[in-house]
Structures are given as C-alpha cells and as structure tokens.
C-alpha cells in the first residue's frame, strides 16, 4: 500500500486530508511540525510527502531540504496557502506546488500523476 506522510500544523486540515486521501486508498501518516515530520521519515520512509511550507519548528522549506538530502527518491508536494513561495527557488526542488483549496481534486490528481511517474522510473531502472 502506498504511504503518504502529511506534514500540516492545522489539526482540522490534517483530519480532512487524512479522511479524503484514505478514501483514495492511501495509507496516511501525519506530523504536526517539521521536526516531527523528519522523525517520521527516518522511522519509516513514506512513498510521498505532502507538506505545508508555513509549519512551526523548522519551516517547511528547511525540512524539505533535510529530507531531500537524505532521501532523494521521495517525491514532495508543497501544499500551501501562500502562492508567493512559488517564486522561492528552493521550492522548485519540490515535485509539485499546489495552492490550498477546499476542492482537493487538484491535489489528488497531482498525487496520482507523480506516483505513476515514479512507478515508471522504477520499472525502467529495474534489471530484468
């Protein structure tokens, strides 16, 4: 089963994403801040990370940097209320950048898209 780590400080939003993404058939692990998120990754690397940028205890971009440096293969989606971070070149390292919306369709589509791509890459690299 595909595991997704969700780093989000807003409790209700965590709950919302958990519910919604579970319905899509994903296993969801949550973290409330950057530090916790990093711990969860080290515990058990997920197949994908969705994170807000504006999270307490290490901001999102910092956390992202640390994760990327150790786990190069985990795709990251930035899901935030701040469209202005789009211009920050650090955020370019993310696989997708989504402005938060009550309509989760865009997020769901992005997750699918990235997972398919990852699967393809993996297949290509696997020796027969």
């Amino acid at each position: 089963m595909t595991t997704i780590l969700l780093v989000e400080d807003d409790k209700n939003q965590r709950l919302l994403y958990e519910q919604e993404l579970r319905l899509e058939g994903y296993e969801i692990v949550t973290a409330a801040d950057g530090k916790e998120g990093l711990g969860k990754v080290q515990e058990q690397p997920p197949d994908m990370i969705i994170m807000d940028i504006n999270i307490p205890k290490m901001n999102g971009i910092e956390t992202m940097g640390m994760i990327l440096s150790k786990y190069k293969n985990i795709p990251i989606i930035i899901n935030t209320a701040y469209s202005s971070y789009k211009d920050n070149f650090m955020s370019w390292a993310a696989d997708a950048y989504i402005v938060k919306s009550s309509d989760l369709t865009e997020l769901k589509n992005k997750i699918k898209e990235i997972l398919t791509k990852k699967a393809k890459d993996l297949k290509q690299r696997q020796p027969h």
């Binding site: 919302l16 919604e20 309509d103 989760l104």
Partner: peptide
C-alpha cells in the same frame, strides 16, 4: 487572505466529504 484560506479549506473540504 492567507490567514483566511486555511479555515476555508477545512470548511469546504469537510462539506465536500
């Protein structure tokens, strides 16, 4: 706007679910 966006996502998201 940004402060409002988060709670709005929750309201809308839960309503949708």
């Amino acid at each position: 706007a940004h402060e409002i966006r988060n709670p709005l996502v929750n309201i809308g998201g839960f309503a949708k679910s």
